[in-house]
Structure formats: C-alpha cells, structure tokens
Nucleic acid binder design. Structure first.
Length: 260
DNA sequence: ATAAAGTCCTGAAAGC
DNA sequence: TGCTTTCAGGACTTTA
C-alpha cells in the first residue's frame, strides 16, 4: 500500500491527532521494526517527554521531528501504516510500536510484514538518508523530470520506480501513470520523445494530485489500479484485456492496445 | 503454496 | 581495458 499518497495520508493523520503533543509513553511490542541500530531503550530514552514537531515527508519516508530532540523516521514497507487511536482502543495484532501522546491518545505504527520500520535520526542522519533519494515526485517540474529520465537506457518503469531518481512512486502508481500516458512500461527511457515525457509528467501530476487528496491510490474503476485485481481485467479506456507480467522485478499491468 | 503495494544486496551484462 | 549503469534474483517478513 504505502506509496507517496499513502505516506502523505499518514502524515496528515499524525498531524491531526499527534501534532505538537508530548510523548508520554512508548511501548515497543515487536522490536523487529526497529531500524538503524535503535533499541527500545534508546527510543524510550530519547522520545519520552519530547514534544512532536511538524511532520514532513520525502518520497515514501516520513520524518517526525521532536522539539530539542532527534527525528523519528518512519518507512512503511509494503504493509505499514500509522494511525491515531483512542487510549482504550484494543491493540491490534500488528501494532508494533505504540506512542502515548499527552496521556490522551495513542499513535500506532502498525505493520504486518516487517520489511521496514522506524528509527531515530539526528540532522546528519536525515541528510544522509535524503542523499540517497531523488526529488519528491509531487514537486518535480517538467524540465527536471525530463533531465532525470531522458538519458536512462533501462525500461521507463524501472527508472520511475527507482527512488534515487524520483522518490515516492511505487508499483501501482507507476503502472497507473504509464497507462495514462499510453506508454509501454518496457520502453527504454531514452527512447521516449519529448512529447512522451511531457505526457508522462502530466499524468504523474494528475495521478498524484488525486491520490494525495484521497490518501491512497484510489481503487476507482476508471483507473487501471481499480481493475488490475479482477479475474479478467480489461482496460477502462478501450476494454481490451490487460497484459500482465514482470517488469523491473514487479508485477506489471498494461493495456496492449493503448500502450503500444 | 504462491504472491504481495517496500528496499537492499549481489553478481553479471551492457554500454561508454 | 576499465569504469559506470542497469537488471535479475534472492533475502527480509507475514498472511490470505
């Protein structure tokens, strides 16, 4: 689930319920989600009593700074989420970390598979993390977009998925964007025309706009994403049976009619 | 049992 | 030839 729009949704959830509040307790229920060498003790020691600042996002990473303390850094892998819960809401099976805020509510890092997790970072560690990432997909302008992609010889889908090129796009979003721009996912990026790249950039902007507002890639029937899990998925635009195979190591759906 | 929206690592091929 | 870029595949993990 968690691609850029989902993480933006988590950020908003956090700010609406946890913004500017004090961490009054921390419970690590499964230390399998602790990353970057953080231990439960260090997490408690460095977060307890701290006030949360304004959370921000870059790509699929969420950064939650504390006032006069380290930044809590979250990545959600494929199944993670962040949710704000009442104190008395029963603990779910996959609530891995529970932060109590102002003794009045809890912020929970929930994750079924523990592919990623949370860590603490100082300014330098945050900078190092960002160094490995391209610009956030939601803010890439057309010229920069073209510069980032036009020289790459690999498949356009691989390039879009590569977080060091553009940060935030995942498997579903990439397929959705390529479908909208009518570009085959295996097309070598450098073979794309100026017009192709323009269409791709426009499609990315529109898809992200809608998805960020929704807080996820919307499962609409008019979108490719809303069809890909059908038993006989067809293109929402032309009705052709969709193709499906692996590109860039991931399950990829496209329309053989629209995306030549 | 297979596959899944995430990333990281390795080894090897491709390209300059 | 040698360096860089890119890809495939496996690993991580849990459950439908």
């Amino acid at each position: 689930m968690p691609e850029l729009p989902d993480v933006e949704g988590f950020r908003r959830a956090l700010m609406s319920c946890g913004g500017r509040r004090c961490v009054t307790d921390i419970e690590v229920r499964d230390n399998g989600v602790l990353r970057g060498g953080v231990t439960e003790e260090r997490l408690r020691g460095q977060l307890k009593g701290k006030r949360l600042g304004k959370a921000w996002r870059h790509g699929k990473w969420l950064f939650v700074p504390t006032v006069d303390g380290p930044t809590l850094v979250c990545h959600f892998g494929m199944t993670g989420s962040l949710r704000c819960c009442a104190l008395d809401e029963p603990i779910a099976a996959h609530d891995r970390i529970v932060l109590t805020l102002d003794d009045t509510r809890t912020l929970r890092y929930r994750d079924q598979r523990k592919l990623q997790g949370v860590q603490l970072a100082d300014k330098n560690a945050v900078d190092r993390l960002l160094e490995g990432l391209g610009p956030d997909a939601a803010g890439v302008q057309r010229t920069e977009f073209r510069e980032l992609l036009s020289a790459r010889r690999g498949a356009i889908k691989s390039a879009l998925m590569d977080q060091s090129v553009i940060a935030g796009l995942g498997n579903l979003l990439c397929d959705e964007i390529l479908w909208r721009a009518r570009i085959h996912p295996r097309t070598p990026a450098r073979d794309l025309s100026e017009a192709d790249l323009r269409h791709l950039h426009t499609a990315m902007g529109r898809v992200l706009d809608t998805a960020v507002r929704t807080g996820r890639v919307p499962p609409r029937r008019s979108w490719l994403t809303g069809r890909r899990d059908d038993s006989e998925p067809v293109c929402p635009r032309c009705g052709t049976l969709l193709c499906s195979s692996r590109v860039a190591g991931r399950r990829t759906a496209w329309c053989p009619q629209c995306q030549s």
